[in-house]
Amino acid sequence: MPPVSVEFLLRDHLADPACAWSLGAYGAVAAFARDPAESAAFCEGGRIGLATPRGAIALTASPDLVPFAYETGFTGGWSQAVALCLPAQACAMGRRVVLTELGPDEAAARAQDRGAILFDLGLGLRAVDACVRVAAPDLIDRLRAACGRPILAPGAAIGALLMEASPHRVFSARFGRVEVYTPIPPAGGASASGPHTHILPQLLRLGRTHAATAPIPSGLVPCAALHPAHPAKDATGRRAGFDAARHAAFGSLLDAWGDPALTALRRTVLAGGEPDPVSANSRVARSAIRAAQAQVLAMRS
């Protein structure tokens, strides 16, 4: 058994402003992050979460929630995350494929938003409902008039309307949600730092729940993830001096919530050894080895 509970894992990382969060699927993601000095209020109703002026996250440590920690290696570095997964048979959300009105958002993180109307964007995601939340009567009327149609169909005008109006985005899974209040950037523009959303039709068409490089165990579907501070990057993703404490902290997460075989390969590389060729003969194993090799180089720089 892991040394800490799922609830402790969530609460501990939510208390760290250097940890970022994401909720979504391949091609549609809502991200939450906050600055250390940014005002934040805890969510009500027993949920594990925070609301800031730019967004919110609200989670529950449901009994079927399974964390899975992993690293992936690539040319010049590595990434790390703890995927928050559900069993495949227990992850399904609405799976709507057209714009659909859902009614008032009674589960909103902030009481002030609970009278606003949720509209499911109809992206057809397996384990996530990607929605917008609207309070302005004129925009509600325009969205109601567009209900029943796909928003990404050729010639659909609803996408441009939403970009211009920039309503709250609300992405929900069975165990929680991320809300984003920042403006939607114009086409070709960069997303704001902190809470933001990405919807990429070319990736959505692939129908994947996650990237092929993420070694999620069979039978689990990742719905969200926590992203602890990287040992060799700053908050903007730029290279920074190696932080041994951060590296050790993620090693502990791998020990508690990762794949034991991949974690063993990591330890071998970090200790200066050569992985057993039989154990290293898979795509995910080779990625884990590349990640560890990148860490060795970062320690030396």
Rank of each mutant, 00 (worst) to 15 (best):
D105G: 13
C85A: 13
T75R: 12
P63N: 02
P104R: 15
A92L: 14
S79Y: 10
C43I: 02
Q112W: 01
E101D: 07
A61E: 11
F68P: 02
F74W: 09
G55W: 03
P87N: 03
P63T: 03
T52Y: 05
P104F: 01
G55R: 02
T52R: 02
I57W: 07
M93A: 08
A37C: 02
F74Y: 15
G77I: 01
S62K: 08
A30T: 01
F42W: 12
A69E: 08
A109N: 10
A51R: 12
E38Q: 13
A40H: 09
A90E: 10
A37F: 11
R54I: 00
A30Q: 01
P36C: 00
A31S: 15
T60D: 15
G103C: 09
R34I: 03
A51G: 10
A61C: 12
G94K: 02
Q80N: 12
A30F: 03
M93Q: 14
A81R: 14
P36N: 01
G46F: 13
S79V: 03
L84G: 08
F32D: 04
S79A: 14
L86T: 00
S62V: 15
A56V: 07
A41M: 13
F74A: 09
G55F: 03
R54G: 01
R96K: 06
L50A: 06
A31K: 12
S39F: 14
G46W: 12
C85N: 11
F74G: 04
P53M: 07
V97G: 09
G55C: 08
Y70K: 04
A81Q: 13
Q112V: 13
L59Q: 01
F68A: 09
L99R: 07
D64V: 11
A69K: 08
T52S: 06
C43T: 15
V98R: 08
F42R: 14
G46E: 13
T100S: 13
G49V: 09
G46D: 11
A51I: 08
A109F: 09
W78A: 06
E38A: 07
A83V: 07
Q80M: 12
Y70T: 04
A83I: 05
A109E: 14
T60H: 11
G103M: 04
T72L: 02
G55A: 04
V66P: 15
A56M: 10
F74V: 00
A61V: 05
C43Q: 12
Q89N: 06
L65Y: 02
A108W: 04
A108S: 14
E71Y: 00
F74M: 04
R110K: 14
V82G: 01
L84C: 11
E38Y: 07
Q80E: 11
A37V: 09
I57K: 06
A108T: 07
F42P: 14
C85H: 15
A90Y: 00
I57N: 06
F42E: 12
A41R: 15
C91W: 04
A31V: 13
